[in-house]
């Protein structure tokens, strides 16, 4: 590990990125911090508000409810997408023409833009003209995502599973492809069961890419905006108002810049914490792998 030469001049090569990030992220974020301790009625006039917005938001149900819905959403889609993705990856053909066909078919949902996915499901689920909605209505199932809590949640979850399970499956598939045949041959000689092969060969070899898949899916789902916004608009009531949707309502709908800034800072802190935990777990796992 340590036989690489150290050359601190390489940091100079990072400078352009640093400048770009400062311009696109750090300075706007600093502005958000400034907004969060002030009140404004537009016109770029600000009045000091101290920590009032933070206090107000922490004491109100609005942010906690949105956070609760957000955590529930991320937990549910991870609990479905990760096992399902692994299952699909295990059952995909390893080589030949069908492998390519599978890969292309699996990638298709990933290529569709978020708002198009939202529109597809918005129409697909409609009771009057949508295939899914109409079929369910014919079967006598009471399904209306604009009015019913469970229908709305089922729709946004199934939509996300449809859109993103492929990502987990493709990453898992890549992990599986990197396992040399010798491992399977050794397992065969030992007469290992299918479960043992999965548990002691495939899962450990996939764990690295699966961590990345979980991180990506958690981040994306935790920041999800477009799809539920297009399909349910956060409704019925506030039932599918996730953090981003609530934040946009606050910042652009009500133009409450101060509270919205405080809200986004707390949102950012949670994301920063989770990213750090994931990053640390991943690097620690890599380091252990390297020592073996």
């Amino acid at each position: 590990m340590n036989d690489k030469t150290v050359n601190q001049k390489a940091w100079l090569l990072v400078l352009p990125v640093l400048a770009l990030v400062a311009f696109s992220a750090v300075i706007p974020l600093m502005t958000v911090v400034n907004y969060s301790v002030q009140d404004t009625f537009g016109n770029n006039q600000f009045f000091p508000a101290g920590l009032e917005w933070f206090e107000e938001l922490l004491a109100s149900d609005r942010m906690w409810n949105a956070l609760g819905r957000q955590v529930a959403f991320s937990a549910i889609i991870l609990a479905i997408e990760v096992p399902l993705g692994v299952f699909i990856a295990l059952n995909m053909p390893k080589r030949g023409a069908w492998a390519s066909v599978c890969l292309v078919l699996m990638s298709l949902p990933l290529l569709i833009p978020w708002n198009v996915v939202g529109t597809i499901w918005q129409i697909f689920g409609r009771v009057d003209i949508g295939l899914l909605g109409a079929t369910l209505a014919e079967l006598g199932i009471d399904y209306n995502y604009t009015q019913d809590f469970y229908a709305a949640w089922a729709t946004v979850i199934v939509m996300d599973v449809w859109h993103w399970t492929s990502l987990v499956a493709l990453l898992g598939y890549a992990g599986l492809q990197s396992i040399p045949d010798a491992y399977y041959q050794a397992a065969k000689i030992d007469q290992a069961s299918r479960w043992a092969v999965f548990r002691y060969i495939e899962l450990p070899k996939m764990s690295g890419v699966l961590m990345i898949a979980i991180l990506l899916r958690f981040m994306d789902s935790f920041m999800i905006y477009t799809e539920p916004f297009v399909v349910t608009g956060g409704g019925p009531g506030n039932d599918t108002t996730f953090l981003s949707i609530d934040l946009v309502k606050m910042a652009l709908g009500q133009f409450d810049l101060g509270p919205a800034a405080a809200f986004s800072l707390m949102y950012f802190l949670v994301i920063l914490l989770v990213s750090w935990v994931f990053y640390t777990v991943m690097t620690t796992m890599d380091a252990r792998e390297g020592r073996k």
């Binding site: 300075i27 600093m30 502005t31 911090v33 400034n34 907004y35 301790v37 002030q38 404004t40 770029n44 600000f46 000091p48």
Partner: peptide
């Protein structure tokens, strides 16, 4: 810098 809406407290914080 006016558009960034600086306050003394946030300036100290970032400092």
């Amino acid at each position: 810098m006016a558009w960034m809406a600086w306050t003394t407290e946030t300036a100290i914080f970032f400092g």
